[in-house]
Design a protein around this nucleic acid. Structure first.
Length: 210
DNA sequence: AGCACGATTAACT
DNA sequence: GTTAATCGTGCTC
């Protein structure tokens, strides 16, 4: 029996903070044509509810935020800064808006294709940011609303029972890039990083992508 | 219809 | 440390 398994919808249908924490150390998997890409999730952020003024759902249910109000276990992929895509996973019960932003992964499979997509960048910079990992894994708006729990999914998360990457500490800090968001939402420690599986820098961002 | 800004990145001084 | 790139979204008029 395999030690690998695709995460169920029940996994995502929980409090966003718990889902975010528990995603660390699990594998993001991307299947495209004959390619198989995989990376271990090492940095995430939680966005939860309309009262969270850092969350896009602060604007209520709109065309853009509708996916976050839908059933859990789907991807919420949005476009920002005129050029970047961001990958999130929808959490909570159907009807309550929540999502986990995937901020960094450690590449495990697909090194050659990722190197070509991350043109000339050093290995340590391949997937150490939310837009970078979308570029590396060829994830864009086509995946907005995509069901991560369907069989034969092209994008999903799997647990890593019995794999080497199963021992690390979790560090929580304020979320990144919310400089104009009012307190307390600007500073709530809803960013989670897997640490001590290698090196981290002074900001707590994991750098051990080698 | 117009506008300010963004859950960022890469390149630069 | 600073800044340009670049456009969809949500808000105001």
């Amino acid at each position: 029996m395999s030690q690998i398994q695709q995460l169920s919808r029940e996994f995502y249908a929980r409090n966003t903070l718990h889902v975010a924490h528990d995603l660390l150390g699990m594998s993001l998997v991307r299947k495209e044509e004959e390619l198989g890409l995989k990376g271990i999730i090492i940095e995430v952020e939680a966005y939860r509810g309309e009262e969270d003024l850092g969350c896009h759902a602060r604007a209520g249910q709109t065309k853009r935020t509708g996916v976050m109000y839908g059933p859990p276990g789907h991807a919420y992929v949005y476009f920002t800064y005129g050029m970047h895509w961001m990958l999130n996973f929808v959490t909570e019960r159907d009807g309550f808006p929540g999502a986990v932003l995937i901020r960094a992964i450690r590449v495990e499979e697909g090194v050659a294709i990722i190197a070509s997509r991350r043109n000339k960048q050093p290995t340590s910079r391949w997937t150490d940011g939310p837009a970078k990992l979308c570029q590396a894994f060829n994830i864009d708006g086509r995946f907005n609303g995509y069901d991560l729990c369907q069989s034969d999914a092209e994008l999903f998360v799997e647990s890593n029972h019995g794999k080497p990457f199963n021992q690390f500490e979790v560090k929580s800090t304020p979320r990144i890039g919310l400089d104009s968001v009012p307190e307390p939402w600007k500073s709530v420690p809803w960013r989670f990083c897997a640490v001590n599986h290698g090196e981290i820098n002074k900001d707590g961002r994991s750098l051990d992508l080698d």
